[in-house]
């Protein structure tokens, strides 16, 4: 059984646990819906600049809801000290990181797509035309978000102030992802298609590759005693 299949075993374990408790994804979705709803009340109907505001609303909801999932990610490994059990396994630390990353990616991507569908109903977005390009943007943003988020979640898990610390650590590093995702989705929501935002998509891809590689390399140092 190879490197990736053992990582997948870790992700699969997280997914099975989530299917049983439904704690993480449900709370992420509810929080995402609430953020969108609150912004919806705050934005005046028929506002001329509404199109400029919309992507910001979507990505604010994505980021805040995503943080909830990341906070749970390593917290569940602390129950019964399971993280130590994992670290005792004869696997490379990168296997553990990638396993947790895959799990977070699945939860974040699902949350992103469902929140977008809810958003499109409330903000009158052409769902049929926008869904596929938006799914691609959401997926790329989820990779960047989960890669750095998984790393920082492992850093903050042992601390009493982990909820606050994770947000403080993560948000500044996530700026390029949120910026690129908001800019490219603005083009899609305007009906210009993915091509118009290709530069921003390129930035997302580069961010994903660079930060995933860095996270794999430094994860070892975050979990060693």
């Amino acid at each position: 059984m190879g490197f990736l299949s053992r990582s997948w075993a870790i992700a699969q374990k997280d997914i099975v646990a989530e299917l049983r408790t439904r704690e993480t994804v449900i709370s992420m979705l509810l929080f995402g819906f609430l953020v969108i709803l609150i912004f919806n009340f705050g934005i005046e109907p028929g506002l001329r600049e509404e199109n400029l505001v919309k992507p910001g609303v979507l990505w604010a909801a994505f980021t805040f809801a995503g943080i909830l999932g990341l906070n749970r990610s390593f917290a569940q490994e602390k129950e019964n000290d399971c993280l130590q059990g994992l670290l005792l396994c004869p696997v490379d630390r990168a296997v553990i990181y990638l396993g947790k990353f895959f799990g977070n990616l699945v939860f974040t991507a699902i949350m992103g797509v469902v929140v977008f569908i809810f958003f499109s109903v409330l903000y009158n977005v052409d769902l049929v035309g926008a869904l596929l390009p938006m799914v691609l943007i959401l997926l790329l943003a989820s990779v960047g978000f989960s890669s750095v988020g998984t790393l920082f979640s492992s850093v903050s898990v042992g601390l009493k102030t982990r909820d606050v610390l994770l947000s403080i650590l993560l948000f500044p590093v996530m700026v390029p992802v949120i910026l690129a995702a908001a800019k490219s989705s603005a083009r899609v929501l305007d009906g210009d298609g993915l091509g118009a935002g290709s530069l921003w998509l390129g930035l997302l891809v580069v961010y994903d590759v660079v930060f995933l590689a860095i996270s794999v390399m430094v994860f070892d140092y975050t979990v060693e005693e």
Binding site: M1, R6, V16, N80, C82, L86
Partner: peptide
């Protein structure tokens, strides 16, 4: 093999699933 006062077991998985999970890690 390590046995501690912490069990390293995942509460949401069954007994069998826990063993299979760790077994996959240990190949």
């Amino acid at each position: 093999g390590v046995i501690s006062h912490n069990t390293y077991l995942y509460p949401q998985l069954s007994a069998y699933e826990n063993l299979v999970f760790y077994g996959r890690m240990y190949q």
